[in-house]
Nucleic acid binder design. Structure first.
Length: 113
DNA sequence: TCACTGACCGTGG
DNA sequence: ACCACGGCCAGTG
């Protein structure tokens, strides 16, 4: 895994993504593509998904449940402890989910800075 | 070592 | 309006 790369002081692009995800306000959501664009042009939405796949070992913990795809669909729900956990977490924050999709996604959407 | 895949997105036919 | 395809990085077989 981390052999020669641990000498490199540069922050990996994955860390940037994790930091952005942590900035997502409670009760709001954002998309993979938005995070990709905010983290850098070298990064694409697919890589954000890959980064999220490993986010469960990252500390501090990353609120990955606030990240959905561009249509507001909870595409990552199967990667949580339970398939319904993502929805439950969002609903606990006041985000309404209907048929695995964020209600009023446009209003709930948070644009990363 | 090579090739494929992935929690996606935008564009073109 | 729907379907198919390319693209980017890193990890795995």
């Amino acid at each position: 895994m981390n052999n020669k790369k641990e000498n490199i002081p540069e922050i990996h692009w994955t860390e940037r993504i994790y930091n952005l995800v942590r900035k997502i306000p409670k009760g709001r959501v954002t998309s993979y593509g938005a995070l990709a664009e905010a983290s850098g042009v070298r990064c694409t939405a697919r890589m954000v998904g890959w980064a999220m796949n490993a986010c469960h070992v990252v500390t501090p913990k990353v609120p990955a449940h606030r990240v959905v795809n561009s249509t507001g669909l909870l595409t990552g729900r199967h990667h949580f402890a339970t398939p319904t956990l993502m929805q439950e977490l969002l609903e606990a924050e006041g985000v309404q989910i209907e048929d695995h999709q964020v209600v009023d996604f446009k209003k709930r959407f948070w644009q990363p800075v």
